[in-house]
Design a protein around this nucleic acid. Structure first.
Lengths: 204, 204, 204, 204
DNA sequence: CATGAATGAGACTTCATTCAT
DNA sequence: TATGAATGAAGTCTCATTCAT
């Protein structure tokens, strides 16, 4: 039988790998389990990936490509910075609760020591991108006078921090029984405080 | 009594374990390396700890006890909420750059999946404690009218998020060459934005 | 399929295990030696058996199945009890000198403390079966008046005891130089004494 | 402190060793447990015994000396062989249920492969002694005409077999739930059958 | 004498990776 | 191509034995 490898074989493996790595981390994941989840032999994994580390890294890269759709919201093009920032934070909060996205921060943080490449990738493709966007918006707000003259670089981290805390809370602490966080509410409250904090004029 | 174990043997092991676990994570750490670092035999580890998992968990507990000294700053007793919050954030920022403290978030996040107990411990002893403190301060500010009527629970996360982002940045992204973050500056900027965001009255 | 496992691989392992366990007992047997005897890697053992204990127990079960062929002699169907008993003892004596059978009593007795399951299996499959058979025969003899009114349960043990002593003698004491026992002669003499002892009528 | 070793230290160790070895066998017994049972340090064992094997063998020797008191019953001096044999079997049955004696057969049989010396000792001091005695009694009976002209060597094994089966039953099979055997009843029934089987004249 | 402590050697078990079919 | 099977290389843990006090 010359079984043709189905064209989605690679994705099937990546999907299975995501589930396993997300659940157990790199070291505790066994290729047996990944293969079983796909329904193929362990050896077949090696037809698509060089080794376990390769599979892991490519899975992360794949998630970064897949789940960071093209760019961030377009419809904000000409909106005022405060609306842009608000939308961005809410968008991030919504994105970060999607299962395909939510597992990444914890995984990347945990394995960054042994896999600098995935930290790099996550930094370049996800973190940096969103932080840059925030910086730009803030800078624009500072420029047009709607925001106080803050350092956009630092202020962006003030904005992003709550989102990071939110996801990690959901993936790290909720599983052990910590009281759940409502990401949307968190985002809303955060936006409320942050925008007022950045705002230049007299708040009402 | 013979071959008297130095009284700090246990700490020596914990210190060595901290270094190894911090560098490689739980699974990739070999007890051989820990023992070698202490200068004892591998078997001697088992005189102090039940097994690898036990050593790991006790190390984390030990760090939580050691590095979260007693309580948080006392000198803020009667200060106004805004000063308390400011001091707390600055204190946290300073604490989180100490090497003995800095490695914990990344490690705990990474291993939380396989070691719920350390996530629990970190949550109870570190995260929850500081978040609670923040909540209390914010609630007091809301009560005395110096803060707007925000939800302290959510607002505390707005405050703490930046700190978390800051440490993780230093432990996860700086090692791969991301541009460094100045924690003190971050804290200062964050406090500036946040306090203004929370503040009730007319900003100046 | 590749590197096709020979269909008798499992038996090859069991055979090797039998040799090792029989010679050294459970604890002193190393899986290395078993594997080496089969000519495979130690890891290959784990493809067939869960662990050392599993291999050990399955080996015993296997021997019980293999070496206790179906049932005991058929040809005695309608014979008088005394002939049946005589034949049974002689059969047992012959069986117990076969190497594949002879090692079991000593091994089971020795490991019964740590492996109740093999004691159970040996009891159910071997000991109990032959003792029951003896009891039935004796009971029949008592019923038809050819045997005295003895307690079949106890009498069966009188009958079987000599066989047990015989095997253990061969496996425990002959190896250290005790004078050998001729199992057939022992069986013959035993039958002679026992039958006369059970017999009801006037012996001649 | 120059602690004087109590004069019974050796026996205390032997007693503890007996309990442990009897329960778990040689390999599975840990010197830690033996020492703990005595209430001394593991190292102290080495002040009295060369090593684990030495302790084991000496324990067996010690039991053989202790529990096989001098000789067998004296009061039978001039009794007729049938009474002597009867008494001997009953005596043996009673002896073999004493805990200090009962554990030996199973232990010796199990470890005989790795410790020929204890098989030797048990053979010389226990088995051979009682079998010889039986042989002598039987030979005397044959000589005086009260027994049929049987081979004393083989007949003795017919006599002794039931006793062996009885003890092993108690130590090997009763622990797993097999129905218990009443050693006295077994001995009585056995004597009954055997004596009649050996007897020369007309039974009554 | 006694001992707490230390250790070296070894055994089991796991698993990523390779190979023959 | 796909795979079942095989394995080598670890790594954890145990324990009899030794040693310094």
């Amino acid at each position: 039988m010359a079984r043709r490898t189905p064209p989605d074989r690679r994705e099937a493996i990546l999907t299975a790998a995501r589930a396993e790595f997300a659940a157990k981390g790199y070291a505790a994941t066994r290729l047996d389990d990944v293969a079983a989840r796909v329904g193929i032999s362990k050896a077949a994994l090696y037809l698509q990936f060089a080794d376990k580390a390769g599979l892991f890294c490519e899975m992360v890269e794949w998630m970064l490509e897949t789940s960071l759709p093209g760019a961030l919201p377009r419809e904000l093009a000409g909106a005022p910075p405060r609306d842009q920032l608000s939308a961005l934070v809410r968008f991030g909060a919504r994105k970060l609760v999607e299962p395909d996205v939510a597992f990444l921060p914890r995984l990347v943080i945990g394995e960054s020591g042994n896999f600098p490449e995935i930290a790099q990738a996550y930094h370049d493709r996800a973190i940096r991108r969103i932080l840059s966007l925030m910086e730009q918006i803030i800078a624009r707000g500072v420029a047009d006078g709607s925001f106080r003259p803050v350092d956009p670089h630092l202020a962006a981290r003030s904005v992003g921090g709550a989102l990071l805390l939110g996801t990690l809370w959901k993936t790290v602490f909720e599983p052990i029984g910590a009281d759940p966080v409502d990401m949307d509410a968190l985002a809303a409250a955060h936006v409320d405080v942050i925008l007022r904090g950045l705002s230049n004029g007299g708040e009402r």
